[in-house]
Simulated assay, not measured.
Amino acid sequence: MASSSRFGGILPIVAIVFGSALLGFAGGWAWQATGAGRGATETIVRDYILDHPEILPEAMQRLQQREMQARLAPLRGAIENPYPGAVLGNPNGKIVLVEFSDYACPYCRLSVPEVEALIAANKDLKVVVREEAVISPDSDDAARMALAAADQGRYAAFHKAMFAKDQVVPATIDAAASEAGLDLAKAKADIASGKYEVEIQNNQRIAEAIGFTGTPSWVIGNEALSGAQSRDALAAAIARASAGK
């Protein structure tokens, strides 16, 4: 379920506030520095903003990026450390792409070939998939089976088989598990034990702490992206993360 930016609707208001704050700051600085000329300084700053209004969205973008970096920093370990085995690509890769995913999400299904292409193009890419069951009760069942598959070393196979199904229902979950080579009896016993509930609930808490409201959602380095992303957009974010290391 793709999510739109929650900042877009308030950008004009924030721009006005930002501009006013900038005027006040500049004027105050001039007053303290020289004791005079406040009005002239405010006029200069005001005229510059009016002549270059494009700086306001850019400034807001910078502010949003800094806020997101501050939000991600204390969660870094929780976000990037996978449930054991719930990884695609290179499990020892130094570049980490995190995807919050739901098997009942059509946009997550559309993202599968994009992620596969990124993995094929970057041998150092580790894709951490966080099972976030948000769409239906069957999403939870599929997420539990995925974690059972991770325990059996069959996560990637189940992930691909499950997303190849047209719908997420008990029959297709069992079919995907069988196709992935799981010991189905053991998987169901593990699921019945309740051992995967903490992981699924934890993924939801992490997503909420980041500010995600749907799937797929992504974390790459200091960036968080919501909704379906093109291969090029993800590749660009991966390149920025790689450059920042």
Rank of each mutant, 00 (worst) to 15 (best):
R130L: 06
V112F: 08
G211F: 09
F7I: 15
I13D: 15
L88E: 07
L225W: 03
S242D: 15
R46A: 14
A26Y: 02
N90C: 04
S230R: 10
P106H: 08
G24L: 10
E197R: 13
A36T: 15
E199K: 05
S101K: 09
G214E: 09
A70D: 14
A236E: 10
A233T: 12
S101N: 11
K188A: 01
S178F: 04
W31V: 12
R71P: 11
A164N: 07
D138K: 04
A235T: 05
I191N: 02
I13Q: 15
I173P: 05
Q167E: 07
M1I: 12
E116Q: 13
R231K: 13
A120H: 07
A149M: 02
A177I: 03
S230Y: 05
E114P: 01
V112G: 00
A86R: 01
I220G: 11
A149Q: 03
A236K: 05
P113S: 04
G181H: 11
A59L: 15
F158S: 03
Q61R: 14
T41R: 01
R76K: 14
A241R: 04
R62K: 15
P91E: 12
G211W: 03
E54I: 00
A156T: 07
S3M: 14
L97N: 13
V98L: 02
S101Q: 13
S193I: 04
I238P: 03
P57Y: 01
Q152R: 10
Q167M: 08
A189M: 08
S101I: 06
E132K: 09
V112T: 03
L147H: 00
I13Y: 14
M145P: 11
N222R: 06
G227H: 12
T41V: 15
E99Q: 14
A171E: 11
A117K: 13
E58A: 14
A161N: 08
E42G: 07
P113D: 05
L234Y: 02
F212A: 08
R231D: 07
V134N: 01
Q32A: 06
C105M: 06
F212P: 02
A59H: 01
R76S: 04
A224D: 06
M162W: 00
A239L: 03
A15I: 00
S136N: 05
P216E: 05
P91W: 15
L147R: 02
D190N: 13
K188S: 03
A237Y: 06
A175P: 07
G89P: 09
V112E: 02
H52T: 00
A156V: 09
S136C: 09
S242V: 12
